[in-house]
Amino acid sequence: MASEVKAIQKVDEDLPLKDQVLATLRAKIGAIEKVGKLGGAVSTTPLALTPDLDAILPDGGLARGALHEVVGPPGAQGAAAGFAAALMGLAAKDISDSGGGVVLWCRRHYDGQENGELYGPGLAAFGLGPERLLEVRAGRDHDILWALEEGLQSTALCAVLGEVSDLSFTASRRLQLAAEARGVPALVLRHNSQSHAVSAAQTRWKVTPATNVTAGYDMRWKLNLLRCRGATADSQLEDWQVEWRDGRLHDSRNRIRTAPRRFTVAAEAGQRSRYPTEPGLAV
């Protein structure tokens, strides 16, 4: 056995230059041919979140070709949407090195009146600028799920997200299969719904806002991994605090919490539009 391996290695070393050139060319052509099928830029490596989270997740990161659910308790709409936007931003950023990474965000028409419209300048903080994000406004959950599937069939997108009130097992299975086939993440954002319903999703995250945020603009959330296929059992008991800073997620479990303060005093009149970046610097 060992001698065989040695022999193969020897052959490898002895490969003439011509064969090596041919091998590289074949690899290149293979990469080009994959373009039509997988949209080219889609990589199979999982999305890296934070070191702590990646250690728990079975793939060493958030699997790309899979369905992920993000649920928020009633009221915490901003936090769950923020975490979902962060995941989308990560998915779009990974692609954008090699070109345009566009993501699809599907909502209902009336969500805008009820929970606020998606706001471009706010989304830009997650790397989802106008050229990266397409918003779809549909009438019903049914249409949103259809739009998600349609988006997953297209080679133009690198992630899709749908805000739905409910997700049946069949619907989740369809999305999971479609995401697997294309190799891009599908996210479902649910508010005010049961977080224990069965679904075919790879992971289910419960997101609540982390309290006692220090000054500054870090967006910080408390995460519970409610479900994760292929993870060890104890991972689901843990909860993490993560924050979005400088265009990526960071662990913030060990961060010292500052004592709660009522508010910072207004800045100098001439600098009213600028906030102090550090809590201690407030005048």
Partner: peptide, 30 residues
């Protein structure tokens, strides 16, 4: 790959608008 992706975006928007109605796909401009 990037070219391919941009070329595919138009058809996708067409299909979505066709079913969901005009103006249902928007970009958020700054």
């Amino acid at each position: 790959a990037a070219d391919e992706q941009t070329a595919q975006l138009g058809p996708l928007i067409d299909r979505l608008e066709m079913r969901l109605g005009r103006g249902s796909v928007v970009r958020l401009e700054s």
